[in-house]
Amino acid sequence: MYSKFVDTSFCIEKPIILLNITKYILLTNKRVLPMANTLLKMSSLSRKVFMALAGTFLLVFLLVHLGINLFLLRNDGGEWFNLAAGFMSTNYLVKVFEIFLLAAFLIHILIGIILKLQNWRSRPKGYAVTGKTPTSFFSRYMIWTGLTILTALIIHFIDFYFVKMGLIEVPAGAADKHDFYAMAVMKFSDMTYVIVYYVWLLVLGLHLYHAFQSVFQTFGFNHNKYTPGLKRCAAVYAVVVTLGFMVIPTYFQFFFQS
């Protein structure tokens, strides 16, 4: 269905790339507005449940993504990594999950924005003295860490997902649009990209730490026996995902010999 946007002869020029992406966004946009409207009409608690459901799906997805990315560490010229990436982009079951994944991202982002706008509206006049109540630092900045992750996600889409879709021309150096190994190696050899990538991951870690424990509270699971343990699990999860993804560019910067 996306093939109508593909016109590789023109894709060399940057404006065309932007046009293609805009078309892609507009295409999804037809579904975004009715979805936002439905979410807006929902009860605040139901919305939180959907937020948490979408979030949980994303939490699991990140682990899968990390698992595949770790194949990059095998010094086999990307054989295993491309095999795994190929499986993820061709398997029909995964393709079904891809729709769920995009929907989860969309729902999660939309609800996040709706929540924040409503929360700002609920206190039109603020206090003169603020920040004296010790609250979860992570909770307060969820929208900002979230938006940072969204920016990163857009760049990530431009770098990889849109290339696979054929919306963006395959970068020179990669064999074809499925040669993610070559694309990843190129990105991770660039010091600037790696530093930005580290910052994104730290922000993602902060987001995930609050996200993991919030899921349980939203589903109504807060128990004096398990909640302290779950908070530790949240910390472990956030650290594992952040460090796990960080290992890969570190390897390509300092230890990789092609």
């Binding site: 605040s44 109540t133 609250t135 979860s136 909770s139 307060r140 424990q213």
Partner: peptide, 22 residues
């Protein structure tokens, strides 16, 4: 009660737990 709470214009919970502290 949740419906009326929403209608009254209160904000959404973001699990900050300032309420519990104060």
């Amino acid at each position: 009660m949740v419906k009326v709470m929403d209608d009254c214009g209160f904000g959404n919970c973001s699990n900050a737990y300032a309420c519990e502290y104060e």
